[in-house]
Design a protein around this nucleic acid. Sequence first.
DNA 1: TAGACGATCACCT
DNA 2: GGTGATCGTCTAG
Length: 205
Amino acid sequence: MGERQLTRDFFDRPGPEVAPDLLGRVIAYGPVAVRLTEVEAYGVPGQDPASHTFRGRTARNAVMFGPPGHLYVYFTYGMHFCANLVCLPEGIGSGVLLRAGEVVAGAEIATARRAAGASRTVPGRDLARGPARLAVALGFTREHNGLDACPPGPVTVLEGEPAKPDLIRSGPRTGVSTGRDTPWRFWIDGDRTVSPYRPHVPRRR
DNA sequence: TAGACGATCACCT
DNA sequence: GGTGATCGTCTAG
């Protein structure tokens, strides 16, 4: 039950449609598995200023324009990796950012990975709370950009137990100054692993 | 070629 | 609760 893998059809839809449907699903890579509790959708080129694909295809975001169901890992802020799942057919750049989750397997390994970059032990609840933490817990880096997350790919997304519709909440995306009108951030209400909301604050110089 | 900034996190007060 | 760290990527000139 719930251990079936999601197929490519699942991702062949607009990001805002896929995102809430991903809540409660389990993404696994190697020994570590994470149950998703918070995601963010990113729209099509030219319509979503917050998306990496807004200005069209570049060498960096090429994976987002590829076939759906693949992993898009990017480096940001000079120190963090974030993982996305590509949506919509090849040629259209859209995806879903994995923001937070709960480690349900391989917690020891995830802890070791997190500890490598931290000076003290990490509480289990915080293992994958936040996009960069989630990427570290699963072991995703630049090398994993473009991996297939559908059968028979090395990354698997399991059916898990989809979140109940009445527990799904949506709101403005984090760290986004434009396009606030699009509530494309989705999370499971009341889940302790959901990252705290942070309104957009321009960085001082 | 140079300048600016970003889908953030950990640590300090 | 506030702030500094840190660098790849894009855009303009």
